Simulated assay, not measured.
Amino acid sequence: MMNKIKKIAIITLTLILLLTFTSCQSRQSGYNDKETAKIEITDIKGKTVVLNKIPERIVSLSPTNTEIMFALGAGDKLVGVTSFCDYPEEAKKIDKIGDFDNPSIELIKKMNPDLVLAGGYIQEDLMAALEGLNIPVASTEAADVESIYDSIAMVGKLVGKETEAEEIINNIHKDIEEIENKVMGKERKKVFYLVWKDPLYTAGQGTYINEIIQIAGGQNVATEITGWGQYSFEELLKQNPDILIAAFHSTDEGMRKEDIMKDELFSKLPCIREGNIHVMSDDNIVSRPGPRVVEAIREMAKALHSDSF
């Protein structure tokens, strides 16, 4: 009788161990499948990008892509970035491959990347050259607020951080909706955005800055021009904006509110004499369509509708 009980116990224990081993193997197999499964996306330019596995050595050709990588918690995969990639602080420590306009193909090759994240249309020739070297390239940089979500989702899928990407996207949606609700029903103040002081340059329709102004509850007075363009001071006087918002680096020395108020030409504007001026705290948040878009919209909205914040 005792031998029979021992035999049953041994068989039961064996079955438990076998099931446990099979379960572990199944989980391990699932993990490996995820690591080795093909990844496929359609990038910003409509090109299909296929990777055989999650990349571990990535080069970023734009500051926006670098910021997205760190926001996803994948900054440690970056082996090369541009000289303009300065956020977050850790990005400054990564090896540089040149500037945004003219990165070095030789330096990129030496880093042996299994993925390159490219920027805008200015980099098309470089992208073609890298693809000719059998280096996978994905164009993931957004041009407007809506495509920021696509950029984050694409990079998240490419680097195996889809859950993190979804969380970031949801938070951006939530924060923008909260700001829009605060400025809803408010009078849309007329805004002139100073990109460069001399000669006078601004951002017209079709620009990321124009979109931020609109979401923040403002009305860009320069929408008669498309893209980035020179603007006449006579037209600016005619438009008579309610507020002037300036990029800090709208001069080589950096712009201050006091500088604008003392300027011989700008002081002719009623909004300047009344002190309705805001200098952006960080030019990059209004020039990089990425995870910090909410910071740009919130700062702009506060400048336009301080009573709502």
Score class of each variant (00 low, 15 high):
Ile148Gly: 07
Ala138Met: 00
Cys24Met: 15
Glu106Tyr: 12
Thr20Arg: 06
Thr140Pro: 15
His173Met: 07
Ile148Met: 11
His173Ile: 07
Asn240Phe: 06
Phe84Met: 08
Asn134Gln: 07
Ile135Lys: 07
Gly73Ala: 08
Ala74Glu: 04
Lys268Tyr: 15
Arg57Ser: 05
Ile225Ser: 04
Phe70Gln: 15
Lys47Ser: 09
Ile260Ala: 03
Asp76Ala: 08
Leu237Cys: 07
Gly204Ile: 05
Leu200Ile: 03
Met300Phe: 13
Asn276Gly: 03
Thr163Arg: 03
Gln239Thr: 12
Lys109Asp: 07
Leu194Asp: 01
Lys190Val: 11
Asp101Tyr: 13
Thr20Asp: 05
Leu115Val: 04
Ala222Tyr: 02
Leu130Trp: 09
Ile260Glu: 01
Asp144Ile: 07
Arg57Lys: 13
Asn52Thr: 14
Ser232Glu: 06
Thr163His: 01
Pro199Gln: 02
Gly160Leu: 00
Ile54Glu: 06
Ile39Lys: 15
Leu19Gln: 09
Ile212Thr: 04
Val49Ala: 12
Gln214Cys: 02
Leu115Thr: 03
Asp95Gln: 10
Arg273Leu: 13
Ile179Phe: 03
Glu187Tyr: 10
Ala301His: 11
Glu177Gly: 08
Lys77Trp: 00
Gly290Asn: 11
Ile44Cys: 11
Val59Ser: 02
Glu180Leu: 01
Ile148Thr: 00
Ala74Arg: 02
His278Pro: 02
Met69His: 11
Ala143Gly: 04
Arg57Thr: 01
Gln123Thr: 06
Phe192Arg: 14
His278Cys: 04
Met154Trp: 09
Ile225Asn: 07
Gly204Val: 05
Phe100Val: 15
Tyr201Pro: 04
Glu106Thr: 12
Ser250Asn: 03
Tyr231Met: 05
Lys302Arg: 15
Thr36Val: 05
Ser232Tyr: 06
Ser60Leu: 13
Leu115Asp: 01
Gln219Gly: 00
Lys182Ile: 08
Lys4Cys: 04
Leu51Gly: 04
Ile297Gly: 08
Ile213Arg: 00
Ile44Asn: 13
Ile135Phe: 08
Asp282Pro: 12
Asp43Lys: 06
Ala153Leu: 10
Leu61Gly: 15
Ser281Asn: 13
Asp283Phe: 05
Gln28Asp: 05
Ser147Arg: 12
His305Glu: 11
Gly290Cys: 09
Gly46Val: 14
Ile97Phe: 02
Ala216Asp: 14
Ser104Thr: 01
Ser29Ile: 01
Lys157Trp: 09
Val159Trp: 05
Glu162Pro: 10
Pro241Gln: 13
Glu180Met: 06
Glu258Arg: 10
Phe309Met: 06
Ile44Val: 11
Ile179Val: 10
Ile172Ala: 04
Glu167Ala: 00
Gln205Ile: 02
Ala74Gly: 06
Asn170Arg: 15
Asp175Thr: 00
Gly156Val: 06
Ile172His: 05
Glu56Pro: 02
Leu61Tyr: 14
Ile108Lys: 01
Leu61Lys: 14
Ser250Cys: 11
Val49Leu: 07
Lys93Tyr: 12
Ala138Val: 07
Gly119Ser: 15
Thr64Trp: 03
Ile172Asp: 03
Ile179Asn: 00
Ile260Lys: 01
Thr82Glu: 07
Glu264Phe: 14
Ile44Pro: 02
Leu265Asn: 12
Gly185His: 05
Thr36Asp: 03
Val116Ile: 14
Ala296Phe: 03
Leu194Glu: 12
Leu19Ala: 12
Asp263Val: 00
Lys189Leu: 09
